[in-house]
Design a protein around this nucleic acid. Structure first.
Lengths: 153, 153
DNA sequence: TATTGTTATACTCTATAACTATA
DNA sequence: TATAGTTATAGAGTATAACAATA
């Protein structure tokens, strides 16, 4: 198999949206507590980085600050997150996942993983291994938040 | 490496949204003519399946009929697609990509592929090959439109 | 009556522009 | 003046419910 960058790009463009749609519709289903994908990812990020600022969220999510602000608004209105001022710099915001938010995050992640696992369970172990390796490769190319907190401050 | 279904599911859930965001923001950029991902996929599907009905689009896209109808509205309003009645069954709609739609589709695809190719060009050939194989595996698990037209009629 | 599709309505995502508050 | 964040505004994606037209 001769694999040019263009050929692999083509496969990515074809398949990634298909998998993404599956993830989205599983998350929006009641089973997983009805989080959108952006809500889920934001919640997960803030949970891993308690006290993070709005710009850190925006940067991780690849969003403009207003978009991130709206996303956070929704999560707060649903009781999944809180927003406070940072003591050292009152312009900055300090985001925290609530206990309820953590519970929803957990349910959503578990539900989605169970769904995906089920779909992948019919594959040969070496195929799953190939998927894991490919994802790791893709993360190294596309991830925006490697050492993010170190870079931001 | 022991790769359980859950482990591969976890990687998918982590990485797919990251790649997806990259694709989306490239498409929304002016370089690629500002198509959304759903618009791009719909245009590509109708281009491959000239004269397809609304329900075929909805099915391929994984959308409800009203959502697909809206999506098509936007594409028509931008002059990228036309909607006619089918002669044999006047309830059915016959969708066709216009010349202009085809040009935009081509520009968008090429721009996005060039962008992705560039990102993937730093990888070792065997890593790209791993990506291609993983995408093919994932397509076999997640694709909804295999033999779709045969199934629908 | 069943099928194909649209309209009405409501939310969310996302962007740009303009603004406020703090440093 | 520069930075962090929000508000205003607008277009698009998506769903459910209700409807119209055709078979």
């Amino acid at each position: 198999m001769r694999t040019t960058p263009d050929e692999s790009a083509n496969e990515l463009l074809d398949v990634v949206p298909i998998v993404m749609r599956d993830i989205r519709s599983e998350m929006r289903s009641r089973r997983s507590h009805d989080l959108t994908v952006p809500q889920f990812r934001t919640l997960a990020f803030v949970n891993r980085n308690t006290g993070s600022s709005l710009l850190e969220v925006a940067n991780f999510m690849g969003l403009t600050p207003p978009s991130a602000s709206r996303l956070v608004d929704v999560l707060i209105s649903r009781g999944f997150m809180t927003r406070e001022e940072q003591a050292t710099d009152r312009r900055r915001v300090k985001l925290t996942v609530t206990r309820r938010g953590l519970a929803v995050l957990k349910t959503c992640r578990e539900g989605t993983l169970a769904h995906l696992s089920d779909k992948l369970s019919c594959l040969a172990p070496e195929d799953r291994e190939g998927i894991v390796r490919a994802m790791q490769t893709l993360r190294s190319v596309f991830a925006t938040d490697t050492h993010k907190r170190a870079l931001l401050k």
